[in-house]
Write a protein that binds this DNA or RNA. Sequence first.
DNA 1: TTCAATTACTACTCAAAGGTAGAATTTAAA
DNA 2: TTTAAATTCTACCTTTGAGTAGTAATTGAA
Lengths: 137, 137
Amino acid sequence: MQLHNTSQYAIRVLNFIANHSDDRLYSAKELSEILNIPYKFLTKIMGILVKTGFISSIQGREGGYELNTPASEIKLIDILNTFNDETDNESCVLGIGICDSVNKCALHDQWMEPKSLMRKMFEETTLNNLTCKDCKL
Amino acid sequence: MQLHNTSQYAIRVLNFIANHSDDRLYSAKELSEILNIPYKFLTKIMGILVKTGFISSIQGREGGYELNTPASEIKLIDILNTFNDETDNESCVLGIGICDSVNKCALHDQWMEPKSLMRKMFEETTLNNLTCKDCKL
DNA sequence: TTCAATTACTACTCAAAGGTAGAATTTAAA
DNA sequence: TTTAAATTCTACCTTTGAGTAGTAATTGAA
Ligand code: SF4
Ligand code: SF4
């Protein structure tokens, strides 16, 4: 019951960049050191974040990454979907397939409240709701 | 953000056996067909459930499985822990390691409510809270 | 006693996540 | 113009979850 490492990394990177977007460009090397994420794995993830349009990259010497979309428009759920961290009904708690209020699994009644709260959180939280100056990176 | 298949299967099997414990013994073959779980994978899981003491097995012809612990004493969280579906703080949403109210990650404030509800649910729900006669298996 | 239905055990394959290696490309500073 | 610092691309390796195969051991029924 956990997010994928890639999702966690992506959230942390995007959050950091969003919090320092006025500043300047950050390179993969810096991000890797600041956020303590394996360099080679980070660059792989950055490539995906560029392709999906969350960030844009400046190539070459003195290059780096910067936010390409306003922080207020990047929802956590969008990041999760990018890395196959599904939160939809198809892959719900007992994974039984399509289900509704009449056709439900044994856990349904207990699960719906935590699940909907979780889903609501991922859907409504954007990067700029996350701004937290003293938080761990 | 999902339970492991093994956890899902284990919950469904244990729930079924708990709901039919008065009945009779159920064999792996039957369980596999009723619950639509691959036979060979199921027997592997049953072995683990026997070792951990949730169920006991009757070997040989006419054998099968039966609950070994009262349904009221089998918490979902115990099943999850058996299959490495951690819900503890070490492996929390951003996976940053030890953290408390002063030393927290950027998602902490948003995450704690859904998380604690989820955790409470897994900790307080036992197999006999789950009894649901018309539910999908 | 034989035999078929059953659990238990060991070892393997497959797929996906997590991570690494190396070289190509881009670009600004020296 | 050269060079070093950067992103990008392709391919690989490792680990773990998911699932399969085959066989041994057990035991009640015929
Ligand atoms: S909890 Fe509800 S929505 Fe989720 S699998 Fe069970 S029945 Fe379906
Ligand atoms: S949400 Fe809170 S407990 Fe979980 S990783 Fe973040 S700081 Fe730690």
